[in-house]
Amino acid sequence: MDRSSLKKLLTDVRDGRTSVEEAFAKIRHLPYEDIGAAKIDHHRALRRGFPEVIFCQGKTPEQALAAFRELAGHNGRVLATRVSPETASLIKTELPEAQYRPEARILFLSRTEIKPRWGRIAVLSAGTSDLPVAEEAALTAELLENEVSRIYDVGVAGIHRLFSHLEELERARVLIVVAGMEGALPGVVAGLTDRPVIAVPTSTGYGASFGGLSALLTMLNTCSPGVGVVNIDNGFGAAVLAHLITRSGDEKP
């Protein structure tokens, strides 16, 4: 249940096309449904513009399936992140129309065509090892109906690789920059453009990177202004923030 469907339902009740009883049956699970292991927030799309997203890491495949099934019964689009192949296989057994993207560890279902209608987001990665997080961000942004460009393997060890993409950076409204190791790429990118930069540290790196803490601290301490930092490996959170920035100032759907 999103804003547009709720408005249509209320209009149909007002105009006599839908009875009060029929409308009540459609909204009786608001604001949430208790399915035992989880309380599914069916109000989320009304508040945030997109249904609740399932974080599968730490959930059993059966728990993830129960949540996915419940959301799919009330929404035309469902997104699950950090999905293992085992969990994806179980969900697709019941919902074969769901699509799995192992490179992003994302499983999604969309009963409507995914068409870009918000601003362009560019997703940059420092190295190939950062691709799982970068793809999580890129695919999430696409599912949120943003136009997305991918600029991968342009880290500071070969900074000349970045310079051929400067015009592409200027065409984006927001930049998501994903980097592990020392995490220097977001600060460099922010010094080359006036676009807001969302920095994503990854857990990629040798022992002294402390599972991404070194990159996180570098990004927090960058001297380039206009950089916001999300948690380690949180490509999903970066994509949602970038999406909200592209929607700012526009009429809500």
Rank of each mutant, 00 (worst) to 15 (best):
residue 10 L to H: 11
residue 11 T to H: 14
residue 11 T to W: 08
residue 11 T to R: 15
residue 12 D to S: 10
residue 16 G to E: 05
residue 17 R to S: 14
residue 21 E to L: 11
residue 22 E to Y: 14
residue 22 E to F: 13
residue 25 A to R: 15
residue 36 G to N: 06
residue 37 A to P: 13
residue 39 K to T: 12
residue 48 R to K: 10
residue 49 G to F: 04
residue 51 P to C: 09
residue 52 E to K: 06
residue 54 I to D: 04
residue 56 C to Q: 12
residue 56 C to K: 14
residue 57 Q to P: 03
residue 58 G to F: 14
residue 62 E to N: 10
residue 72 A to M: 08
residue 74 H to G: 08
residue 75 N to A: 15
residue 76 G to D: 15
residue 81 T to R: 07
residue 82 R to L: 06
residue 84 S to Q: 11
residue 84 S to E: 12
residue 86 E to S: 13
residue 88 A to K: 05
residue 92 K to Q: 15
residue 95 L to K: 06
residue 96 P to K: 11
residue 97 E to W: 01
residue 100 Y to E: 10
residue 108 F to M: 09
residue 110 S to W: 14
residue 111 R to P: 03
residue 117 R to C: 15
residue 118 W to I: 07
residue 120 R to I: 01
residue 121 I to Y: 01
residue 125 S to C: 06
residue 128 T to K: 09
residue 136 E to N: 04
residue 137 A to I: 01
residue 139 L to D: 02
residue 140 T to A: 05
residue 143 L to D: 12
residue 144 L to P: 15
residue 147 E to S: 03
residue 151 I to P: 06
residue 151 I to E: 04
residue 154 V to G: 01
residue 157 A to F: 01
residue 158 G to Q: 07
residue 160 H to D: 12
residue 161 R to P: 11
residue 162 L to W: 01
residue 163 F to V: 09
residue 167 E to S: 13
residue 173 R to D: 12
residue 180 G to N: 02
residue 184 A to L: 12
residue 186 P to G: 05
residue 186 P to L: 04
residue 186 P to W: 03
residue 187 G to P: 00
residue 188 V to M: 05
residue 190 A to G: 04
residue 197 V to N: 00
residue 201 P to G: 09
residue 202 T to P: 05
residue 204 T to P: 05
residue 210 F to V: 07
residue 210 F to W: 14
residue 215 A to M: 03
residue 215 A to F: 06
residue 216 L to E: 02
residue 218 T to H: 03
residue 220 L to S: 02
residue 221 N to C: 05
residue 221 N to Y: 01
residue 221 N to H: 09
residue 222 T to A: 12
residue 225 P to V: 03
residue 231 N to V: 10
residue 236 F to K: 09
residue 239 A to S: 14
residue 240 V to C: 03
residue 244 L to H: 07
residue 245 I to C: 01
residue 246 T to N: 03
residue 246 T to E: 07
residue 248 S to Q: 08
residue 249 G to N: 08
